[in-house]
Design a protein around this nucleic acid. Structure first.
Length: 116
RNA sequence: CAGGUCGGUUGGGCGAUCGCGGUGGCGCGUUGUCGCCAUCGAGGAAAGUCCGCACUCCAUAGAGCACGGCGUCGGAUAGUCCCCGGGGCGGGGAAGCCUCCGUAAGGAGCGAACCUGCCGGACAAGGGCCACAGAAACAAACAGCCCCGCGCUUGCGCGGGGUAAUGGUGAAAAGGUGGUGUAAGAGACCACCGGCGUUUGCAGUAAUGCAGAGCGUCAGGUAACCCCCGCCGGGAGCAAGGCCAAGCAGGGACGAAGCCAUCUGCGGAUGGCGGGAGACGGCUCGUCUUCAUACGUAUCCAAUCACGCGGUGGUUGGGUCAGUCCCGGGUAGGCUGCAUCGAGCGGCGCGGCGACGCGCCGCCCAGAGAGAUGAUCGCACAUGCGGGGCAACCCGCAGGACAGAAUGCGGCUUAUAGACCGACCUGAGGC
RNA sequence: UGGGGAGUCGUCCAACGGCAGGACACAUCCCUCUGGAGGAUGGUAUCUUGGUUCGAAUCCAGGCUCCCCAG
């Protein structure tokens, strides 16, 4: 995921966390808000509760890798924040991807893949 | 060979595809949060932040006090209480050997390499504390032993004195054993052992050790309690610091004037001409950007008057109000510090027991800012499990620790699956 | 990057360097037709590793975990 499609500034994170809707899953939390520029941006976060530095990095890498394949199917004009929870660092890539798919469907950002 | 220790090296390899970050080069009807190519991309601890430096900013006449740290000797270093090598006093240390006890099983002692804790002063001075037990906890006499006097039931009571060997208590009671000595005793005296703010010789740079002489042997412990002595110490930290700088607020300069048309819900809105400020140009002018009809018994200041006097009100005078431009400081934010030119890394040689030092050759090696290393697959490899095989080995499944740079460096501490190499000690056997 | 604090029964708190205590909870018994309440009895702990000391929860050092503060 290239940096230009990433949420980077602190005020963006604050805005999305304050005014966006959140959807929870045991592995990850999704926060959705409208993007003022009209494109899709994604932020990834892992707090102290996600573990030590290796586990936090592992969780963020898993989220980025899982989102890489899902990004083209997501509706635009939104800012997303993915917050890792404590169990994510020991999860597999397939687990992460299905968790994200579940969350995106609940947020109605992606149509249910009835063909798969 | 068996057992016990210690040190060092390494920290999963090769390849393919997709993805991410930095740097360099090239490209462009699109100068971009762009595209293409090349190249580089975590560690031995990157961790904890326990020490010490570099670097940066602030403070700084001198001296003293307070506070904090350190305290054996020598060395190494840019520097360190922490590194290296010694010294002293403790603690730990397998099997076996050896010694002792035991008929034996076994037990106790000794115990190597090595590991590990501590290190000024309790006699240079002072204060505090030492529970319980015990007569007594730093100064003493409970029982006991002995002497003297008195009494009588002649081995006991009372009174006075001597003593600290014996008993019991305790972690600790003015060194231990044997003798001389004595009324009983006592370093009172003697021998040996132990000890020492004494001293001589030898070894060592020194701490210290060994040997001898001397001192009768000295009134406990605790300074990781206060304290005393000696030495050392300015503060902050890359979110340090430097540069640029929206917005808001501040200071300065300039600073206006309306008229017409259309619509109208009569509040106003839009447009034209004119006006203000600034920028640019070919500068008596043109173009562009932008602003306004706000002015009110608004608000601020000064003087003065009145009253019900820290206040309120009146009068007079002056300032402020739109906008533009300029100025300094500076917030958000950006750039830098900051990506090796260095206490740098690798190799070889030399010196040193070692920490480390010196010389030569080669190399240029991560750098983000919501924070780059991931995913999938294949081939071998170490390991574990199951099966087959006499065996080498084959097949299947599982599966590779601790852990992620954020200014850099040195030391320490802590976590760590394994793999490899080397050294030391003890014992047994062989030559 | 720097600074501060805490760790004691299952939980919340006490404790001069000298026998670790209290409340609630838990277990057993009594009381009751049963349960609750009440009463009696009991078990249970100093984060960890070393050191100083005759003696350590307390003093010192290293480690682990958690919390807080400043920029």
């Amino acid at each position: 995921m290239q940096r230009k499609f990433r949420l980077t500034r602190s005020e963006d994170f604050k805005r999305v966390r304050r005014s966006g809707r959140s959807y929870a899953h045991p592995l990850v939390v999704l926060v959705v808000d409208k993007n003022p520029q009209g494109n899709l941006r994604i932020g990834v976060a892992a707090g102290r509760s996600a573990g030590a530095a290796v586990r936090r990095n592992r969780a963020k890498r898993l989220l980025r890798e899982a989102m890489r394949t899902l990004t083209p199917t997501i509706a635009s004009h939104t800012d997303l924040i993915l917050i890792a929870r404590s169990g994510l660092a020991s999860a597999t890539l397939a687990d992460t991807r299905s968790a994200l798919l579940n969350l995106l469907q609940r947020a109605q950002l992606i149509s249910p893949p009835h063909e798969s």
